[in-house]
Design a protein around this nucleic acid. Structure first.
Lengths: 350, 350
DNA sequence: TTGAAAGCGATACCAT
DNA sequence: ATGGTATCGCTTTCAA
């Protein structure tokens, strides 16, 4: 099929051992001329070692697995890009998998990654339960989760990297309060996830500190149904905003959303109700995806340092591999990025 | 390290051959009870065959490679998701790689994929030259490109799947003309790519049919510099729009962009110049990414059927593998999705 | 119906 | 400084 190490050895008139040595930089134990002869042949033949063989021999590959809900979501797409770049710097490749938020898919990919002998995996989903990870971890798999602050039901040994969701959402609440708002709503979305609960609590908690009763905040969905699929987060946000405005008899002036896509969708809902974002209703998102500063008005949102998270994920994994750390969780401080969606003054001449 | 086929064979009291047969569905040649015994052990041990070994033996894997500029771009993120789903339906996995629009990176990934023994690869970049693909194709690699209608300099045997960019851009031009616009601009962006030239030509061609001279259309950038990086497409669009409006002495009333991200960025530029998209200036994009119908006003744009393209890419690859087709290129018909950015009437009460 | 054994391509120990 | 060879886990003839 392809050119093998034997072919190279034969043509260079040396043994496969020598070729292998050249390949792996053990050049001190051979004459320079031998080395260059081999290198020439390698060039000529465009020889590249067969991965499967290397891997079989070595029992592993310098590659990480990254499992996310879906790269079509800009949040995950961006993280994937950053993670790949960070891994590359440490000499690791990345295998990217979309779980589509399905437990079965996630499980299937995880097992596949294990069979592939990956050096570690980063799991970017927030499925409520992590019990299925137990056996994987016990079997020696190195797993780092993203944005799932450990739950009591989680298996031990889970390393998690996430922003302090509670504090982040509180920032959003404080900001809206400081801007003079007194009637609030929170779009939690239809998906159950770990971070969702934390963000709701953080938001309500901050407002409670100012005497706003939990019951007075419109938390959407009003009735729990939870269907899943982030296919149409924006559409959900639109519907949510409309329902909130109506249910509150147009009293709500501030809406926070559990993520930016939902917040952006809410823009449209607000508009459809004849109101203007920024002027009539302030909106705060969470994540700070690149769209936040593109849309009009630009979106005030809680920033998640994806670049740092990607770096940390890689360094944790590397640490677990070389034994320099046991996989310590990291909790990052979020910060609020103030933009136009919460600044009535700077809005357009309407 | 992990449990092997030998371990399973030992415990089941059979040979590895039998276990292998069970694994590969050759169940007709063994007693049902032998089979179930083996299956039980496999379950108990949670045994999964080592991929590297299978691959080494078989000389290939049921996996496709997908190389795109960057999944942080929603266009590619969405395509990646769709492609993965389509591949999965045919029993293939997907290895996703981000070339970051670097020839070296792309080349490196391609070689790596070849060494991994992937069954085929889809290349979603539009680097002007495809000469580096020649050797790969000759060495038997199955490559399908996306959106690079073949160039004369391309190596033979390249299968391409793309929308008719020329026709698509013409659609945009016709639409703007029909809406009564007479002063046009086209934001081509700073990256050289195959489709860019086609789209510029299609747009200018359509207008020429109505007597608009090429020189009368502001094609941005006015002076060629071409730097690359789609990191900040939106920011580029913003700058472009401002420059166009100023250079034309505010005469331009219609702007088309080579892609949606650029178009969306242009929204802001227009706004910064004190004008309103839809009312004062019509904007048309290309791609129809999901943002097109989220932003305000929603964006009129040329739709690319990414789902179909993903399906076709997979079926071409599968065809090349089982020999049922030699890898025929496909040219899809684009269509225009009319939305608010070109409808002055329906715009907001300003 | 079942098993023994050769080999896929690269690596690394042990010789020379 | 260089080479022979066992080995990684699995598939697949070929024999029994």
């Amino acid at each position: 099929m392809s050119v093998t190490i034997h072919e190279v050895a034969r043509r260079a008139g040396v043994s496969t051992t020598t070729v292998s040595n050249v390949l792996n930089g053990r050049t001190e134990r051979m004459r320079p001329e031998t080395r260059s002869r081999v290198e020439t042949i390698i060039q000529e033949l465009q020889y590249r070692p067969n991965r499967a063989a290397q891997q079989l021999r070595a029992g592993g590959i310098r590659t990480f697995g990254l499992v996310v809900p879906s790269v079509s979501n800009p949040f995950w797409g961006t993280f994937a890009s950053l993670f790949e770049a960070a891994a590359l710097k440490h000499g690791y490749g990345v295998l990217l998998c979309n779980s589509q938020r399905s437990l079965e898919q996630e499980q299937a990919y995880l097992e596949e990654l294990r069979n592939d002998g990956v050096a570690g995996v980063v799991l970017g989903s927030s499925l409520p339960s992590a019990r299925h990870l137990g056996p994987l971890i016990e079997s020696g798999m190195r797993i780092v989760t993203l944005d799932r602050s450990s739950q009591s039901s989680d298996p031990p040994g889970l390393t998690d990297i996430s922003v302090d969701n509670f504090a982040g959402a509180a920032l959003a609440g404080e900001h809206l309060w400081a801007r003079g708002h007194r009637h609030f709503a929170f779009i939690a979305g239809e998906m159950r996830s770990i971070n969702r609960q934390e963000r709701v609590e953080g938001f309500l908690g901050a407002l409670a500190g100012h005497g706003v009763a939990r019951e007075d905040v419109y938390v959407w969905p009003f009735a729990q149904k939870s269907r899943g699929k982030d296919a149409d987060l924006a559409e959900t946000g639109r519907r949510a905003a409309r329902e909130i405005i109506r249910a509150s008899g147009r009293k709500v002036t501030a809406i926070a959303a559990v993520n930016d896509l939902l917040a952006i969708g809410a823009y449209r809902g607000v508009r459809e109700e004849g109101l203007t974002v920024g002027r009539d209703i302030a909106i705060v998102g969470f994540d700070d995806i690149f769209l936040a500063e593109i849309i009009q008005p630009t979106l005030t949102t809680v920033h998640q340092p994806l670049d740092q998270m990607a770096e940390i994920a890689v360094s944790r994994l590397v640490g677990m591999i070389d034994g320099s750390n046991a996989g310590q969780s990291a909790r990052l401080a979020p910060h609020l990025v103030e933009r136009e969606s919460t600044e009535p003054g700077k809005r357009r001449r309407a």
